[in-house]
Amino acid sequence: MDVHVRDLRYFLAVAEELHFTRAAERLFVSQPALSKQIGRLEATLRVPLFVRDRRSVALTAAGSALVSPARDVVARWDEAQRAVADAAAAETAVLRVGMSTSVGRDLLPSAAERFAMRHPSWRIQPRQVDWGDPTAGLADGTADVALIWLPASAEPPLTSRVLVTEPRWVALPAAHRLAGNEEIAFAELLDEPFLALPQDAGAVRDHWLAMDQRAGHPVRIGATVANADETFEAITNGLGIALLSSGNAAIYRRPGIVTRPVTGLSPTLLSIAWRAGDHRAVVRDFVEACTAYRPGEGREETAP
């Protein structure tokens, strides 16, 4: 009878922990189920792999001899799974890029052009996601990579690279008392009603409310908005003001709305993100294509 890769994973967990309970917790299985599986592996190999008593677990000579080959087999199988995933993705040849509203600054066309040099048969598929999902589709698997604002969501674990660092501006009604100022100190905005992202946006919601720079001053929420269109409507109707990145100021310039630089705030960071552990070549190459972008190659639109 052949040994399954799962059996080798179980064996390695016990060999590395030398403790069945800890190994079971690591594998998210019950300790009796793990013991039963190890027993079957020993029966298949016709040799004991561990010496057990009530206080300790130790490898036998046969168990020690199996550790290195088992690691090789598991590593090769993981590599094979990644290759299969790459091949399956290559059949559809579509890389889904999540984002909130549109991304300008010429970033996406520039990245797509560089990406096409390595993967000419692939197509970039932009996917618009409302602001309630700060991962822009990475959390539910509807995006392969995403352009997001930091701080990133803790779940799922993401890896990201900063692409653009920009000052924060404010969008406010054209009739606002501060609309005529060339720039506005954040202290002058503390008591204003702010437009807030949905609660599910978490730390990104707090960032666009500048919660970390209010020194305990409470925030007034004028309305909750889930996308750019709702934001434009709310500002025009005087429901509140909204912080935004300087690179996106152009898309807010419409009748009834003005944008101004805000002093006294830290900058905002636009990044390219992907799920931690996603090692597909197409993801890596698209990330590299994005990081090759230099501000000034074009002008962009990404809200907030």
Results as ranks from 00 to 15, higher is better:
V145Y: 04
G202D: 01
Y252T: 02
A80F: 10
V73D: 12
T231M: 11
V14M: 01
L269V: 01
R280G: 14
T224C: 04
M99G: 04
E17L: 04
R299W: 14
I257D: 03
T60F: 10
S160K: 03
A23Q: 09
G63R: 03
S266D: 15
V67C: 09
V74S: 09
L49G: 05
R40D: 05
L59F: 13
P295H: 13
R220A: 15
S271D: 12
R46T: 06
P304D: 09
G277E: 08
R22V: 04
L18W: 07
D144I: 02
W208L: 13
W208A: 04
L265F: 00
T21Y: 03
T259D: 02
A13W: 08
F11Q: 09
A93W: 03
T44K: 15
S100E: 15
R55E: 12
E300H: 14
W149F: 03
A15P: 05
P32E: 10
A203Q: 11
E233K: 11
A139T: 10
T135H: 14
P261F: 07
T259S: 06
P295R: 12
E42W: 11
D140A: 05
L269G: 00
T101G: 08
S245Q: 12
D144Q: 09
A281V: 05
T60G: 09
A174F: 00
A23R: 06
I241W: 07
F20W: 08
E17G: 01
T302I: 10
A276Y: 07
P157F: 08
T291D: 04
A171D: 03
Q199W: 07
E182W: 06
S266V: 10
G98L: 09
E17Q: 14
G247N: 00
Y252S: 11
D191A: 15
D140H: 13
I124C: 10
A116I: 00
H207K: 09
R214M: 09
D86P: 02
R76K: 11
W131S: 15
L239C: 06
A13C: 08
A154C: 01
T92E: 15
V5G: 03
D86A: 12
L95E: 03
T236D: 06
L18P: 05
R54L: 07
A136I: 01
L197N: 03
L158E: 06
W131E: 00
R6G: 07
